[in-house]
Amino acid sequence: MKILFLACLSPKTGNNTTAERIRSYVEAAGHTCELRDAAEFGSPAEVAALVSRRPPFDGALAIHLYKAGRLLLGKKTTTTPQTHTHRCPYKPIFGGTDINEDVKVQQKRLVMEQVLQKTHGGLVSPVVWWWMCVIISFVLQVFLLVCGLRRVKDPLYLVQAFSEWHRENPLNVLIIIGPKVSTLSSTLTQTAGVFLTNERSQEELHASMRRCCALVNSSVSEGMSAAVLEAMDLGVPVLVRDVPGNAALVRHEFNGLLFSSPQDFVVQSRRLVSDQELRHRLVLNGRTYGEDHHSLDQERETYQRLVDLLR
């Protein structure tokens, strides 16, 4: 089968990494998969024209119901505006911001509903947020916050409380990894114990994660944080904000620690630093959880089956 795959492909983003991985699954199953950036297309009509070219596509996939899925709604005709001209079957893959944030906006929600109505059902996929890097000194107790610097990621949520803890114990350091933003950089310049560093490759990020004290997630809203799952797989404890997406992955004191406020984050961090038995339990259970519920083999088989449903 010839498959069109639409996703947001900004360089060095989690969406890009996830899309490339899914494409490899599809192609490994013997299909042809053309991965295209959703930002290339200004309207569903442009995608409809692409799909209908010879030889035509047999099916399509799209990560994120609004940003990419809406482009598969087709070209509306002049006589029947609610119908669509191309017959290419498609499957949307839920991202994270679509079902956590965009659904709150009525106009976007209506479009997403149309996307779902035109298919036989979507598949929830992790949105892999931002793959970045920093080289960490073994001397420090480094807490690593990996995120795209957006409102929903709330990168400044822990800054003040962590800075106060750092003044008490200078060995504790919080490093935020993500694209530098001038306003954020200027804020952190005045903040003790909290640093911002540029993005790096996934390989460099993993090397840094293995050497940090814990992987932190402070998001206001999450779908299924791949950074958290990666940390578990690498044997790194996770400290995550108690929001539904994070709480779906992390069971408090079993495979990670949840915090409900900046002050609670410091309390849980102190426990993690001082209690080696707790740390060992979180690492062991985190790895087991990832193997049981988020294995790459299962993910590959699921996406290959998804493509088969387009036949």
Rank of each mutant, 00 (worst) to 15 (best):
L61H: 00
A62P: 04
I63K: 05
H64S: 08
L65I: 05
Y66C: 06
K67E: 13
A68F: 04
A68I: 04
L71R: 09
L73R: 13
G74W: 05
K75S: 13
K76Y: 03
K76F: 00
T80F: 06
Q82L: 10
H84K: 09
T85A: 07
H86F: 10
C88I: 11
K91T: 10
K91D: 06
K91P: 01
P92C: 14
F94K: 04
F94G: 10
G95E: 13
G95T: 05
G96V: 02
T97Q: 06
T97F: 03
D98G: 10
D98M: 10
I99Q: 01
K104T: 03
K104E: 03
V105E: 02
V105R: 08
Q106F: 06
Q106L: 13
R109W: 02
R109A: 15
V111F: 07
V111C: 09
Q114G: 12
Q114A: 06
L116Q: 05
Q117P: 02
K118G: 03
T119Y: 03
T119P: 05
T119H: 07
H120S: 05
G121F: 02
G122W: 00
V124K: 11
V124C: 12
V127Q: 15
V128P: 02
V128N: 07
W131D: 07
M132Y: 11
M132L: 14
C133R: 09
V134D: 15
I135D: 15
I135E: 15
I135S: 14
I136Y: 07
I136F: 09
S137P: 03
S137F: 07
F138N: 15
F138E: 15
F138Q: 15
F138H: 15
V139G: 00
Q141Y: 05
V142L: 12
F143E: 12
L144M: 15
L145H: 11
L145G: 05
L145W: 08
C147W: 08
C147P: 04
L149N: 13
L149G: 02
R150K: 14
R150P: 00
V152K: 12
K153N: 11
D154E: 14
L156I: 06
L156Q: 08
Y157A: 14
L158C: 02
L158S: 00
V159N: 08
A161F: 03
F162R: 05
E164Q: 11
E164S: 07
W165S: 09
H166I: 04
H166Q: 11
R167D: 11
R167N: 12
E168R: 13
P170H: 04
P170M: 01
